[in-house]
Amino acid sequence: MRNPLVVGQRVYLRPLELSDAAEIAWHAATEAETFMERWRRPASPLAFEHWITDMHKQRPPDTICLAICLIRDDTLLGDVGLHEIDWVHRHAETGSWIGLKEYRGSGYGTEAKHLLLEYAFEHLHLHVLSSWVWEPNARSAAALLKQGYKPAGRTKWTEVQHGYYRDTLLFDVLREDWLAARDRANPAPSSREEMGEHG
């Protein structure tokens, strides 16, 4: 593992490096899904380099994005992040993206998100987190619920799809919500042996 910050069973989170920019740009170039309102567009590695450099200049940071990597061979799967961190009110917005489509739907994103929430709640001692999901992106909304987020409401008419204005859904998660979800995903060791690995 390279410079690990939080380590799970199959993946770990580490700081994004400038050398990741080309890989992330390739993820963007090969995006297969159309339901993500902002990400399906070609982006230059130069823009990602700039983003990574800027992010590491902030002290204290208002954005912390971390690379999701496979423990077994360090493959970069995508990234998770805390955005608009408010260090006084101790809240932030979360985001995640699995760039390699063959790793979607296999629990890697959920594991990475649990590591991000562990980092946010247990290391940074944030109190509450929010997340926005464009309404057509039902898969991400379902994943958030599985990770312990609760529906908080919506914001109207944010983006256009097929000629219709669509809403964006808002979710929030407190530490206790996340702990309960994590316990559901990772039962006590004796029962985990019976159920096998989750995801």
Partner: peptide, 30 residues
């Protein structure tokens, strides 16, 4: 009121919710 973020803001001695309000313009025939 289109959203409520629970315990979003810190106040002396506790935390409070934050509400999101939106004004929709009826002239936009959505």
């Amino acid at each position: 009121r289109t959203a409520t973020l629970r315990q979003w803001l810190a106040r002396p001695g506790g935390r409070i919710d934050q509400y999101r309000y939106e004004a929709l313009n009826p002239d936009w025939r959505i």
